[in-house]
Amino acid sequence: MKKLAALDPDWNPRGHAWTVDSQWHYAYLAQLLAGGARLADVGPGVTLHGEDVGRWLATQRRDLGKLNEEQRRRLRELGVKKAVQGR
């Protein structure tokens, strides 16, 4: 396991206290942004590899305060901010 962690610290997302599904959506969001998408354009219905990344992002923004610190840090690095109430 130490060798796997040395190669990829995210090989086991449950070790970070989040799900594999969440890890995939995070990676897909990062791919979209690296490909030139803007966060403002990634709304519900925006998909990658058949997954609704926009819907996942909206949930993360809404529930940002409920995520653990590492999740919030990673999302902040992508420019994600908490959703404004009422929007």
Results as ranks from 00 to 15, higher is better:
1 M>A: 15
2 K>I: 09
3 K>W: 12
4 L>P: 02
5 A>R: 15
6 A>V: 13
6 A>K: 15
7 L>S: 13
7 L>D: 13
9 P>A: 15
9 P>K: 15
10 D>M: 12
10 D>C: 05
11 W>E: 02
12 N>T: 04
13 P>F: 07
13 P>G: 05
14 R>Y: 04
15 G>Y: 07
16 H>V: 01
17 A>Q: 01
17 A>W: 02
17 A>H: 05
19 T>V: 05
19 T>S: 15
19 T>D: 10
20 V>H: 02
23 Q>A: 14
23 Q>F: 08
24 W>D: 07
25 H>R: 11
27 A>I: 04
27 A>M: 07
28 Y>E: 06
29 L>H: 06
30 A>D: 12
31 Q>W: 04
31 Q>T: 07
32 L>H: 03
33 L>A: 13
34 A>P: 00
34 A>T: 04
34 A>W: 04
34 A>C: 02
35 G>W: 06
36 G>V: 11
36 G>I: 11
37 A>W: 14
37 A>K: 14
37 A>N: 11
37 A>S: 15
38 R>L: 13
39 L>A: 11
39 L>K: 12
40 A>V: 12
40 A>E: 14
41 D>G: 06
43 G>W: 02
44 P>C: 01
44 P>F: 00
44 P>K: 03
44 P>G: 05
44 P>Y: 03
47 T>H: 03
47 T>R: 10
47 T>V: 05
48 L>N: 00
49 H>V: 02
49 H>Y: 05
50 G>T: 00
51 E>A: 10
52 D>F: 01
52 D>Y: 03
54 G>I: 00
54 G>M: 03
54 G>S: 04
57 L>K: 02
60 Q>K: 10
64 L>D: 01
64 L>H: 03
64 L>G: 02
67 L>V: 08
69 E>H: 12
69 E>K: 12
70 E>T: 06
72 R>C: 12
72 R>K: 14
73 R>T: 07
74 R>M: 06
74 R>C: 04
75 L>R: 06
76 R>Q: 09
77 E>K: 13
78 L>I: 10
78 L>R: 08
78 L>C: 09
79 G>F: 11
79 G>D: 09
79 G>N: 10
81 K>S: 13
81 K>D: 08
81 K>E: 15
82 K>L: 10
83 A>C: 06
83 A>E: 14
84 V>Y: 07
85 Q>A: 14
86 G>Y: 06
87 R>V: 13
87 R>H: 07
87 R>D: 06
87 R>Y: 08
